[in-house]
Design a protein around this nucleic acid. Structure first.
Length: 423
RNA sequence: GUGGGUGUGGCGAAGUGGUUAACGCACCGGUUUGUGGUACCGGCAUUCGUGGGUUCGAGACCCAUCAUCCACCCCA
């Protein structure tokens, strides 16, 4: 076998691309309704952006980035996520000078060097939203409601929306200490991974899948015990507003997000049916990130949604729209003279916006009819030597099996009439 | 990075060491000259991911390698 596509990448072929187009169109529609505008940033950025933005200690930065030196010896990285880039763009383009908040969305490929598995790729696609310059709880609720609304429109069911507050850096640090104090006596009950997490990232132990870790952490102090008054009222307000927006959610004190920048509200949406990688959307507030990147202190919140995973869920739940017939009519021209006449007719029909095509292999009438049938065409426009001599076109209705003769001069008009009736 | 499964034509799938590698779908062509969706007929893998090895003999056994899938880690 010759050259193959890189591991963890996909060729999206006709038949599948339509599903992506449908999903993307629905997303854009919801974003427009919510008043979000699209932003497009580069596929690669200075490596430092992700190191600072995503966090040096995260797996993404430590082992999953596609990093390379360009010809000027600058370290560049294929974007593994987009929140850092959007914040960079916000600062660099001085969007803080525009009316606040700035409400943005993006759709595009991300790159992470991982072992592929179900729902996990090296090039994958995310839809995401970022709101910069607003710290009110309503923003958190609006963003989550946007996600909810999108899934409703897509018809997805069996969703689990988990919401939590991880607090600001101050209360998070307090929680961390309390958690370690709680766990220190049970440390030997934890799995190997969690033994290591104990020092590095004890919050993560809370959402370990290992049953013994689950048991060891029952009754552990939650973030709510340590939330400062500000974080606490913020969280309560978010929950109230979510209820008012009709979002069905669950408060999950064990929900911890993996990226360093999250503060206060964190949330995740899961669909169990799609496999081990069941999170189809994850996000939260990141009030310190813009400043971390070198901009003015600016609150922010956003999420990212894995489109491959959403599509998988839609497939499993059978919620994708049916494929429409590709062509309205097929032109069947027999012989070179007829092809000349037919080709110009074809171009006239297409100029009028009708989806019409013709045989490109010079095949027999019979074969072409068969092909037209398979395309789902409603009409066959037959033009042979005989018709040419009499200046007519055979207009055959493939559904009814009837055909009529139309003078060539009236052909476009007549066909258009049929087409408009169908549309 | 770790662990497990799989690899036969475009797709699905038989083939438990022995002469010519089933079958289904798809595809292409035909069933008298220019009329489709059905039916019938025919065509479509010098070869079983690749490279070695065992054997009189291998798609089947062994080794290596590559690819792919699933799971862990982590994330969308």
């Amino acid at each position: 076998m010759g050259i193959q596509r890189p591991k963890g990448t996909q060729d999206l072929l006709p038949g599948t691309v339509e599903q992506w187009q449908y999903l993307e169109a629905t997303i854009r529609c919801v974003c427009r309704d919510y008043g979000y505008e699209e932003i497009r940033t580069p596929m690669f950025e200075a490596t430092e952006l992700f190191q600072r933005g995503v966090g040096q200690t995260t797996d993404i930065v430590k082992k999953e980035m596609y990093t390379f030196l360009d010809k000027g010896d600058r370290s560049m990285t294929l974007r593994p996520e987009l929140t850092a880039s959007v914040c960079r763009a916000y600062v660099e383009n001085k969007l803080y000078g525009q009316p606040q908040p700035v409400k943005l969305y993006y759709i595009g490929p991300m790159f992470r060097y991982e072992r592929p598995q179900s729902g996990r790729f090296r090039q994958f696609h995310q839809f995401g939203v970022e709101v910069l310059g607003a710290d009110q709880p309503v923003v958190d609720a609006e963003v989550i409601s946007l996600v909810w609304n999108l899934y409703q429109r897509l018809g997805l069911t069996q969703l689990e929306v988990h919401v939590n507050s991880v607090g600001c850096p101050t209360c998070r640090a307090k929680h961390r200490v309390q958690l370690q104090e709680f766990l220190v006596t049970r440390r030997n009950e934890l799995c190997n991974d969690c033994q290591e997490r104990f020092e590095r990232n004890p919050l993560r132990i809370l959402d370990c899948k290992n049953p013994s870790c689950q048991a060891a952490t029952t009754g552990a102090p939650t973030t709510y015990d340590t939330l400062c008054p500000d974080c606490s009222t913020h969280f309560e307000r978010v929950l109230v507003l979510l209820g008012l927006a009709g979002v069905v959610y669950r408060v999950n004190p064990r929900l911890v997000r993996g990226l360093d920048y999250y503060t206060k509200t964190a949330f995740e949406v899961m669909v169990e049916e799609i496999g081990a990688q069941s999170a189809i959307c994850g996000g939260g507030r990141y009030d310190g990130l813009v400043e971390e990147i070198g901009g003015p202190s600016t609150p922010g919140i956003g999420f990212a949604m894995g489109l491959e995973r959403v599509l998988t869920a839609l497939q499993i739940q059978n919620k994708l729209p049916e494929e429409k017939p590709k062509q309205f009519a097929m032109l069947i021209a027999l012989g070179e003279k007829a092809q000349n006449e037919g080709f110009s007719l074809l171009s006239a029909l297409r100029a009028q916006g009708m989806p019409v095509s013709m045989d490109l292999l010079g095949r027999s009438l019979k074969t072409q009819l068969k092909a037209a049938n398979r395309q789902g065409a409603q009409f066959a426009l037959i033009l042979g030597e005989e018709e040419l001599e009499r200046n007519v076109l055979l207009l055959r209705d493939l559904m009814l099996g009837e055909q009529m003769e139309v003078p060539l001069v009236e052909a476009v008009e007549q066909i258009k009439k049929k087409y408009q009736r169908g549309v």
